[in-house]
Design a protein around this nucleic acid. Sequence first.
DNA 1: GGCGTGCCTTGATCCATATCAAGACCATTG
DNA 2: CAATGGTCTTGATATGGATCAAGGCACGCC
Lengths: 248, 248
Amino acid sequence: MHVQVPDSVSTLGPCGGCAHCLTCEARSRSICSVISPEHSARLARYSHRLSVPQGRSFIEEGQPAEDFFIVTSGHAKLFSLMPDGRRQITGFANTGQFLGLASGKTYAFSAEALDALTLCRFSRSGLSTLRRDFPALENRLMEEASRELVQAQSRMLLLGRKTARERLASFLVEQHHLQSGLDHRPPSDRTLTLPMSRTDIADYLGLTIETVSRTLNALQREHLIVIRFVTLITLLDLAALEAMARGD
Amino acid sequence: MHVQVPDSVSTLGPCGGCAHCLTCEARSRSICSVISPEHSARLARYSHRLSVPQGRSFIEEGQPAEDFFIVTSGHAKLFSLMPDGRRQITGFANTGQFLGLASGKTYAFSAEALDALTLCRFSRSGLSTLRRDFPALENRLMEEASRELVQAQSRMLLLGRKTARERLASFLVEQHHLQSGLDHRPPSDRTLTLPMSRTDIADYLGLTIETVSRTLNALQREHLIVIRFVTLITLLDLAALEAMARGD
DNA sequence: GGCGTGCCTTGATCCATATCAAGACCATTG
DNA sequence: CAATGGTCTTGATATGGATCAAGGCACGCC
């Protein structure tokens, strides 16, 4: 069990000078991979591990952007809300992902844990120090920003111009590529474990839950996918889904 | 008149060692503003001015991203295309804007001149050199990337969740803020000069030209705007438009 | 001035997706 | 095992914006 702290998240331990970075499971997939292991102590001095329970929010849009985060395990959703409650999920975050680039003085999005989540927190000043001391970090952050911008472009195309079928196909193919990159899976495994609800998928794709449900079932009827459980989907015809995602 | 060069753009002059950067009108609004004027010659060594006529494309999605650009005058549209011709404009670029952050090995978007456009071109290696020599550039590029990412989030919300009226209101308010930042305009001027066509507006907002036209006329009937000419629109009630843009 | 040619507007109709409304499923709890 | 409550599916209907189809208007060209 973890200990509650005022700002709605929980620390796993003080870790003031400990070497959590040396044993970090997310390291190879995060910006920290550019810092060699012998400098782990430096890294650890400016970062703190914390855990966030499922459903708990840990970044609030509009709040001063004082901290940056790296996801060390679990999944998060990043979203914007309109005053009447309309929601747009701007992205999902997996292990290794850096959070906070899309911020000026304040965060441009809110973030919430989809499942049990652990994070590594950096203060703005701590990260500045690290960036100064490890110039390779600068490049890696820039790459991260570029990658996110490229992704943002394709999401604009999806949200602005694709049909519901194309959106779902794009989503499934994207999840496949994300999950096939993971260590413990055989590359031929075409079964997805979705960490998010139908509501989240709808808010990610700019659709309603009904349309998501109906469209997934339509894809199943056409033998492109099999819905084994709500959160477990097998892609039967990846090439066809990729073609549909592109819109041809 | 300018000289045609193979890759469909035109150089204004060789400028090998000349000091175009010292007199650059875009400088104060671009990333170059972090480099002090006495280093202009260095800057000029790695950059080349070129001009692009209206309607000409100068970045092609999917091509190797060998060059970066800064808009020195005029306007450009950045967009993605689907195989069947559906188009999503991901952004418009004004004087000072840096182009090329949303790229890995290849460009993630195409770019085309909306009017007579002048650009400053940096090769990838030239920019790397400058980034090494002027560390302030690094920070400025990172800020630029953050700003673009914040903008991308709000565009996803617009494309995924806003109604046609809200999209047009958002667009008009955005154009107002962009144009009221310009030197030569009195801050109270609420008349916009739009550099883009109805088709471009539609492709920017994920709508059709008919819906753009109808919705603008509806806003005029409600005395929120006056359409003086196709490309000249006065905002009568900025507060109401801002509220509509937010969705409340 | 007349005449294309390209945009833009306006009207009529259609349709993909939203909305509204039950039900089904499933996990949890008493 | 029944009751409860959340999430998901399925069906019926509505609707915002797309599509189809004429015009209108401005600008360049002969």
